[in-house]
C-alpha cells in the first residue's frame, strides 16, 4: 500500500526519448539515470533548469507520476524505467501504456497503473485544485483511490508479475528453475 501526492504531466504520447534521451544511455550500470529524467524538458539550453517544467516546481512532489495516454512509447530502453524509479517514483499512472515500457517497469519494481480516461482526468483535476492531493495505491487489492474525491479504480495486472512484486520473486530464478524443462524442449525442437 502506498499513499502519496503525485506529479502530473498531462501530455499524451510521451516517448522514451523524452523520458531519457539517447545521449544519456552510455552508462554500463543501472544507477544514476534519475538526474537525466526528462532531461530536455527539465533543462533549457546551457543546462539551465526550465522553471515551467513540473519537475522543477517544488509545489509538486510525490512518489506517483501521472501522465497522459500512451506513456512510454518508442524505444525499448529499460533506462526509461530505471530513470523514473531512480528519481524516486514508485508508481506511474496513465490511461494507456506502451507494451515494452510497461514490461520494463514491472521488471524494475515500478508499478504501472492503467486507469480509465475519466479517472485519469479526475486525478489531474484533483492535483490542479490541490497540489497536496493524495492517492492511495494497493497492489494487493489492485485499486487506486483518489483520496480527494473518494473515487476508486480497480486496475488490471498480470497475475504472475503481481505475485513477483508482492513476494520479491525474481524472473531469472524462476527461469533457472525450469532449466531441465527447457533442455527437454530443445531436444524436440529443430532450429533451421
Amino acid at each position: 500500500m502506498l499513499q502519496s501526492t503525485a506529479v502530473p504531466i498531462p501530455i499524451e504520447d510521451i516517448d522514451t526519448d523524452q523520458i531519457i534521451p539517447a545521449r544519456f544511455l552510455k552508462a554500463t550500470s543501472r544507477e544514476g539515470f534519475g538526474e537525466n529524467l526528462f532531461r530536455d524538458w527539465r533543462y533549457s539550453k546551457g543546462d539551465v533548469p526550465n522553471p515551467d517544467f513540473i519537475l522543477n516546481n517544488p509545489t509538486y512532489q510525490g512518489q506517483i507520476l501521472v501522465a497522459g495516454k500512451n506513456f512510454g512509447c518508442g524505444s525499448s530502453r529499460e533506462h526509461a524505467a530505471w530513470s523514473i524509479y531512480d528519481a524516486g517514483f514508485k508508481v506511474v499512472v496513465s490511461s494507456f501504456f506502451a507494451d515494452i515500457f510497461k514490461g520494463n517497469a514491472l521488471n524494475n519494481g515500478l508499478l504501472p497503473v492503467t486507469v480509465s480516461p475519466a479517472f485519469l482526468d479526475g486525478m489531474f483535476k484533483s492535483i490542479e485544485q490541490n497540489p497536496n492531493a493524495t492517492f492511495t495505491v494497493s497492489l494487493e487489492d489492485q485499486t487506486i483511490r483518489n483520496d480527494s474525491t473518494g473515487a476508486t479504480f480497480s486496475f488490471d495486472i498480470n497475475a504472475y508479475k503481481k505475485m513477483c512484486l508482492l513476494n520479491g520473486y525474481d524472473d531469472i530464478d524462476f527461469l533457472l528453475s525450469l532449466k531441465d524443462k527447457i533442455a527437454a524442449f530443445e531436444k524436440q525442437q529443430v532450429i533451421y
Partner: peptide, 12 residues
C-alpha cells in the same frame, strides 16, 4: 525487449 529480458534470454 528491455534489458531485464535480455538477462532472461542470456540465462535461460
Amino acid at each position: 525487449i528491455g534489458t531485464s529480458q535480455v538477462e532472461q534470454v542470456l540465462s535461460s
